[in-house]
Design a protein around this nucleic acid. Structure first.
Lengths: 242, 242
DNA sequence: CGAGCCGTTGAGGGGATTCAAGCTCAGTGG
DNA sequence: CCACTGAGCTTGAATCCCCTCAACGGCTCG
């Protein structure tokens, strides 16, 4: 974990004005804060960069901080005592992760970077301060919690239900939304697709190959792809009726 | 929906002192409130009773209230545009449901009573009042949100992963925890089991019958069963190694 | 008593897994 | 430079789990 403190006003610092200029400010946790508020907090928030497949935090760890995702994709994993692991959710730009820490609770999942990830690390006590001083923060927090809950329930409904082919289509739809609109999307390894959709690597591979032949996706190795959204929609619709 | 206002001090009222005497007070949303606080809110909270298979609220509805579950089991459903429906989570005694309403958002799921359910209906504005007046409430709220998020992620990991036999064992384990310890548990209809585990009725029936033959559960029709927790544990363990 | 819902069981088929082999590609060291 | 290696991906063949289609019995209720 590369941790760099943020000094908003020191223009010589590479992370100068990072909070104020943060591209996700409008949708991030402190989006509603004015400059005075930023002055108060900016010295406590650190910018964190994580390389793919490195953990942000581990399940059971007594966390002292929450994170906002500034860029990249984070996955949440749980594994059974028997060893099989399952990816239960993804988070992307603007999402708040590790909220359990605010309740002095251990982290509930393994959080691992899928792509290069940029995070803002926010100490627990800092949120506590703002929660008492300001009125708007709790509401922002609850919003994040609800977003996470909604994402998790949608994961059950879309990525854990029905035939494998449809589950993969839904996954691609999500990946497309997580990336730049129209741009190439991050494509997980086959083993990761399997962990997301509860499939074996072989089945994941077969299905991806099939979509490639059908023209729904164009592979851009390694770990990227271009998605034909129109073809994807078509495939999803013909899925139900066929 | 049978709605009965709660008048805490009117001893002639059947719901008299319901808030003060509420069995789930210690673990419920207003658990931390003192009597003075109760005085303020008790006239605004209504007791709601719902019969099995009746909705608490519908997805998309602009909700003006959250609910705490005082007794019974509530299920959350989502259905795809193609018509197939999936149960994504269960809630039981002490759980807070419909929290989206606090954010002026439409309800995210269909919430439907599985068993006879008793709820406390808490208007949104009441929570807003308490949130500004008291400091402890937001924390309680966040705790509920985290409980729901955790339940949803566990649903992915346990009830949507692996072979159907193991998924059913995990479901029975949950149902046992939702009911009285040692007592009979509520057993969903086969169709409902199917919607929870993404199975057909036939497969659900076959698996239940198998567990009955193996002595893991004893059916107590209609819609109840006794579970041999030791046998269940054994079955879950031999599952992984076999 | 017949209608309808729920649960059960059987037979057959299909989709996903398992086991296995071969491929590409980047990194390594001769 | 190129064989060697290992990780990731792909494909094939056989097996198995679960689905589909179907029939039937128990039960409630009009």
């Amino acid at each position: 974990m590369a941790i760099v403190p943020l000094y908003r006003r020191d223009a010589r610092h590479p992370q100068a004005q990072a909070c104020a200029a943060c591209e996700v400010r409008g949708s991030a946790l402190f989006g509603a804060l004015d400059d005075a508020g930023l002055d108060h907090i900016h010295t406590h928030i650190a910018s964190v960069e994580i390389t793919p497949d490195q953990p942000v935090y581990a399940r059971g760890e007594a966390g002292a901080a929450v994170f906002t995702v500034r860029a990249g994709i984070v996955r949440f994993e749980r594994s059974s005592p028997h060893g099989d692991r399952r990816i239960v959710r993804l988070a992307g730009r603007g999402d708040l992760i590790g909220q359990e820490a605010l309740l002095q609770r251990p982290y509930a999942d393994e959080a691992i970077a899928c792509t290069p990830v940029q995070l803002c690390r926010i100490p627990r006590h800092l949120v506590d301060q703002l929660a008492t001083a300001q009125g708007s923060l709790p509401r922002e927090l609850m919003l994040r919690w609800q977003v996470a809950l909604d994402a998790s329930e949608a994961w059950v409904a879309e990525l854990s239900s029905g035939p494998a082919h449809r589950r993969l289509l839904h996954l691609l739809l999500r990946l497309a939304r997580l990336g730049e609109p129209g741009g190439p999307v991050w494509l997980p390894r086959r083993e990761e697709i399997g962990a997301m959709l509860d499939l074996t690597v072989e089945t994941a591979s077969r299905l991806v190959s099939r979509l490639r032949r059908e023209g729904v996706i164009e592979l851009l190795p390694p770990r990227a792809a271009r998605i034909d959204l129109a073809a994807l929609e078509r495939a999803l619709n013909s899925e139900g009726t066929g």
